[in-house]
């Protein structure tokens, strides 16, 4: 990511001048809203924001899933909001413009009548939050910046360079504040979620390839280590939030479109891990290498749980 490029921040919550408890309420509710949208898109269908906007008008917004599937089934990437067909720069720009417009709509509640709301709820939860929060660079996962007073009541900060690359991961309870820092290599926006009070330190790092920004959330004291990992495609910034002690592992997962890096925050014990999609990895491998074996070779270290065969004893 170029140094001068604006950081990957999707939305900024402006709480300047607001006193307690409004920064907390605003931040938590906004994060919860984003989380719900993300989760809804993950559980259900792929988001259809770009496609739905291609229909234009209010009706398209009311029934995003239906309209999108009719036109371009699963045509939109989860995080980028750019369709697979948008290969040429011109069309891609158009798609990005549509995505931006759709994102703008996300900032407002969809103004529908109560009957339409009920119909939407009954129809399916999978389209209720079409999601898609796309970052400016189309590469990063969801990020929310909160600007305002940096008090104990607020979860917010800008980076020292005042450029504000922020991914606010408010895991756990609300009083946990976040402190932002840039990586030493000055290339990557880093979000440091330091849980607890500010004295608790955070450790920054770059990825080995010096390309991927890494967000390390080091919880508690400095002994608790963090582990960096690059994504398989060597393109994605990865944020690893390793909570608690070192045994607790984090596993990376790529998004289906193979473009969006994902920050996995694995809370709690090690069983609660995330497993890469076998299908997605195979598909990607077949497209890029042509053989399944090479895919195994390439991704087995990342996707071992999915590729492992049952033991003979079983």
């Amino acid at each position: 990511m170029p140094q001068n490029q604006p950081p990957s921040v999707d939305f900024t919550l402006d709480v300047r001048g607001e006193s307690c408890p409004y920064p907390v309420i605003y931040t938590l509710e906004t994060l919860l809203q984003l989380q719900k949208r993300t989760a809804a898109a993950g559980r259900g269908r792929l988001p259809c924001l770009a496609a739905q906007r291609s229909g234009g008008g209010r009706q398209a917004r009311l029934c995003p899933g239906a309209r999108a599937r009719e036109r371009r089934p699963r045509a939109v990437f989860l995080y980028s909001g750019v369709t697979r067909h948008s290969s040429s720069p011109k069309s891609q720009q158009a798609e990005i413009a549509k995505r931006d417009e759709a994102d703008h709509d996300l900032l407002r509640p969809v103004g529908v009548c109560s009957v339409c709301k009920l119909a939407l709820r009954l129809w399916s939860a999978r389209i209720w939050h079409p999601l898609a929060i796309s970052t400016p660079c189309n590469r990063a996962p969801v990020a929310l910046t909160v600007i305002g007073i940096a008090r104990k009541c607020a979860i917010l900060a800008c980076t020292p360079c005042n450029r504000a690359p922020v991914a606010l991961a408010v895991h756990g309870i609300a009083q946990k504040c976040a402190i932002l820092v840039r990586t030493p290599c000055n290339r990557a926006p880093v979000a440091l979620a330091v849980h607890g009070i500010a004295q608790k330190c955070a450790i920054l790092a770059c990825t080995p390839c010096n390309r991927a920004p890494v967000a390390l959330a080091v919880h508690g004291i400095a002994r608790k280590c963090a582990i960096l990992v690059r994504t398989p495609c060597n393109r994605a910034p990865v944020a690893l939030a390793v909570h608690g002690i070192a045994q607790k592992c984090a596993i990376l997962v790529r998004t289906p479109c193979n473009r969006a890096p994902v920050a996995l925050a694995v809370h709690g014990i090690a069983q609660k891990c995330a497993i890469p999609s076998t299908h997605a990895l195979h598909s990607r491998a077949r497209r890029s290498r042509g053989t399944r074996n090479s895919a195994k070779m390439r991704y087995s270290k990342y996707a071992r749980p999915a590729f492992a065969r049952p033991s003979p004893s079983r």
């Binding site: 950081p7 402006d14 709480v15 605003y26 900032l107």
Partner: peptide, 8 residues
Amino acid sequence: PVVIKGAF
């Protein structure tokens, strides 16, 4: 709240 798209 005031929500702005993108970074501030």
